[in-house]
Computed example of a mutant assay.
Amino acid sequence: MKRTFALSTALLLGAFIANPAKAAVINGDFSAGLTGWDSLGDVAVSAGEARLSTASLDVDDFPAAAGAFNLSGNAAAPVGQPGGVETFAGLPLGQLDPDPANGGWAFEGSALRQTLGVQA
């Protein structure tokens, strides 16, 4: 998830620098919570930072209570399924799997995005 967020941020910053008069990041410091941002999964704002996790609301936090590590009350979103994290981030399904040839798959995650319109 960090890779997707970093890539999105880099693209957003590149668009902002390329044409600052036509595009602006809305609420880039999260001082207004998630206003101006689309989120999917377990996303919350704390101390001026957006925090994303892979925490579900299910019983997978054992020995802690179900949902103990969840930040927002929203379950992490699925990865590798239509309508999940990859679809939200505009990536092909399977793109977030770290090493599928050796059994390394992504299962769930969270994401933030903000869409900007820029003029060439």
Rank of each mutant, 00 (worst) to 15 (best):
Asp97Ile: 01
Met1Cys: 11
Ser8Arg: 15
Leu34Arg: 05
Gly36His: 05
Thr87Ala: 12
Ala120Gln: 15
Gly48Arg: 06
Pro100Tyr: 08
Val79Trp: 02
Asn102Gly: 10
Ala10His: 09
Asp42Arg: 02
Ile17Thr: 08
Asp97Tyr: 01
Gly109Tyr: 03
Leu112Pro: 02
Pro63Gln: 14
Asp58Leu: 07
Gly117Val: 15
Gly90Lys: 11
Asp99Val: 00
Gly80Ser: 02
Ala111Phe: 04
Gly36Cys: 02
Ser110Glu: 02
Thr115Ala: 10
Val59Leu: 08
Gly94Glu: 06
Ile17Arg: 04
Val85Ser: 06
Phe69Lys: 11
Asn70Asp: 10
Pro98Arg: 08
Pro98Tyr: 09
Asn70Ala: 06
Ser8Gly: 15
Val59Glu: 11
Gly109Ala: 10
Asn102Arg: 15
Ala47Gln: 11
Gly67Trp: 07
Gly104Lys: 03
Asp38Thr: 09
Val85Ile: 13
Gly36Ser: 05
Arg3Tyr: 11
Pro100Met: 06
Thr35Gly: 11
Leu96Lys: 03
Phe16Glu: 13
Ala55Tyr: 01
Ala10Gln: 11
Ala65Gly: 15
Ala32Trp: 00
Gly73Lys: 08
Leu96Ala: 07
Trp105Ile: 09
Leu71Val: 10
Asp99Gln: 04
Gly104Phe: 12
Phe62Arg: 11
Leu52Gln: 03
Lys2Thr: 13
Pro78Asp: 08
Phe30Ala: 15
Gly14Pro: 00
Pro78Val: 09
Phe107Gln: 14
Gly33His: 09
Val45Asp: 02
Ala89Leu: 08
Ser72Leu: 07
Ser110Asp: 02
Val43Thr: 02
